[in-house]
Design a protein around this nucleic acid. Structure first.
Lengths: 199, 199, 199, 199
DNA sequence: CATGAATGAGTATTCATTCAT
DNA sequence: TATGAATGAATACTCATTCAT
């Protein structure tokens, strides 16, 4: 009945959309399942057909979002060559793109992560750590290869990720910066942070 | 021979400390006033002697924290000379220092800000925006003076702040990076982000 | 072989009956929703399925009672002819009858009216005032027609209504005065108050 | 420390006045001792110097009011001669006068009587019943003496009292009916209710 | 006479969840 | 698939009252 991913079907989609909105507006604890059901145009009990619990609903959202981001990252890396700078830029672009495209999900993921109970969180935590190690390895390789002049790779990596992640907090889709332009800007910032010696 | 009862008249501080802990652990909505009172070693109603509401408690915390940070920033700027790079570094150091010294308050401020109702939030929002403009002006002046080679000052500023603010999420006081060393590292990162042409 | 559990779906009526009793015994503020739920044999939260709030519960009671009384009055007037004395007697009889039949509701209406918040009270106030004007018009017409010798019609009207309304305060259903007899007595009193010149 | 009557002295008077207002506005249960203290301009604890409990405060008010009314009634009867009509009129005038002069206290007495716990209520109940018997005896004597043509003396008495008591519900001190005029009107109404055969 | 600080029981209300249909 | 009805535990908050000073 409940699955890791958000279930497809009319009710399921409506619930997913409503949950996204309400979690974003009020946070996990501030959101009530009644509000979500009302927003979705369904009865309270219908919710429980699609999701076993409020936790399950949150977990489904975070899992779906995480997997989408993960795929975007691996696709970007597959398309990039072996050059560390290219690979770092690929990750930055994928991240910026996701933070812009999935602004709301990104904010929820950033804020409500800690409200996942261990059972639901565990599979995500592992995957997330793997992703972090991937970022770290790319920076380290760039340093080792002499492409980056970076005394503290771990802080550089953290700074780059923080800058990219923050985008969903302030980005205004109606603003005048296009998404590709934004990718370019943050790619440049990332390369400056690692002090890339461009060829 | 310490006494675990709260001495009469000191309830206010016990509550503030307890609230800090519990808000940090569970978030504003996840924290119950009962929990906070219990942690403070006081009765539920003692809470309401010191604070008119849960909102008021949160507002008091955020306000106190904000003012402390604000003062640290202005003190740092007063001590710095007129050079834009010096001023930017002063702000970065003050921020890193505060994020490390007041890790918990910083996390709460970052996460629970939105749970402040407008009445309590308004005075803080104004002060916060002023601070942001201060950061922005420093970066812009550096660019105008030719000290920073920075095509997108606004994104640079946002990246620097995001990197500094993220510190409270991962910093481990028991780790092996000293606070002054961390200040130095993030000052360097900031100067790289704005592409400072050092002397 | 009666079952003391409330059958599913009939909770609304059980609550209404319990509320009537408890409001009557302790007054609106003195009555706790817990008491009402317990008396109804339902859980506290079942109350909130049927009524949005304690206010709503009170408003529902007062509204239902008011409408029943209103209908009794209009029916009585429709049955009465055009003669002012007949019409006054019709209103008195309808009122006495209602005060006896719905003793408890009458007491609650008299005492708890002011505890209705404006939102709930407004629709009732209008209807109530219309009813008062109806009483007033009948007395005035009797005076104008020379049927009543009544120097201060407004005070007469108030006295009659006060006398009738007070019945629910002292009437004992187990006493030895029948309801029709009581109607007759108060009709006579009313006619004396307006100094009716019988034909 | 607490006495039957409202204590004299600055604090005591302020509390009595504040209690009168707040009880009138919100009813006994709806009024909080905090509100009363605030309105009186005193601290919460000062209240407890003057009155042992909220009950005591209510009891003091009701007792004081009752005694004042009682004295007005006996004074009026003493001044009246032996004629039943004169005596009835004396009681009506005393009652109307009191209901107008002490409008607020009258309303509180009418509504909050039942919130007195038995311990505080008992002495008042006895005195109150004596007063009711006094009214009843006067009407009965009038009937026996042939001065009143009154088939149901008990209902007549109840109607007269109800009419008089209701005055405090609608009387507007700023209105255009003077108090003596009102006394006259209700004396007339009372005499009509008992069908007095005037000389 | 009066206060500031504290309490424990109680308030209305909301919550996630379940059950019978 | 979906619902209307119900629940029990929890929530923020208020209450009358007390105590040390």
């Amino acid at each position: 009945m409940t699955d890791d991913a958000i279930p497809r079907g009319l009710g399921g989609e409506a619930i997913a959309a409503a949950a996204r909105e309400v979690f974003a507006e009020r946070g996990y604890h501030g959101a009530s399942i009644r509000d979500i059901a009302k927003r979705a145009g369904l009865s309270l009990s219908a919710m429980y057909y699609w999701h076993a619990s409020k936790q399950d609903l949150l977990a489904a959202m975070l899992t779906a979002g995480h997997h989408e981001y993960l795929e975007a990252c691996t696709a970007a890396l597959d398309a990039a060559g072996p050059d560390p700078a290219d690979r770092l830029v690929a990750l930055v672009r994928a991240t910026v793109s996701y933070r812009v495209r999935r602004r709301v999900e990104s904010l929820i993921a950033a804020q409500e992560w800690r409200n996942l109970d261990p059972v639901h969180a565990e599979p995500l935590v592992a995957s997330r750590q793997a992703l972090t190690r991937l970022w770290a390895r790319i920076v380290e390789e760039g340093v080792r290869a002499g492409a980056f002049d970076c005394p503290h790779p771990e802080d550089a990596r953290r700074s780059i990720q923080a800058a990219c992640n923050a985008i969903s907090q302030w980005y205004d889709p109606a603003g005048d910066v296009s998404e590709p332009e934004l990718e370019q800007r943050y790619a440049d910032i990332a390369l400056r942070i690692v002090e890339h010696r461009g060829g």
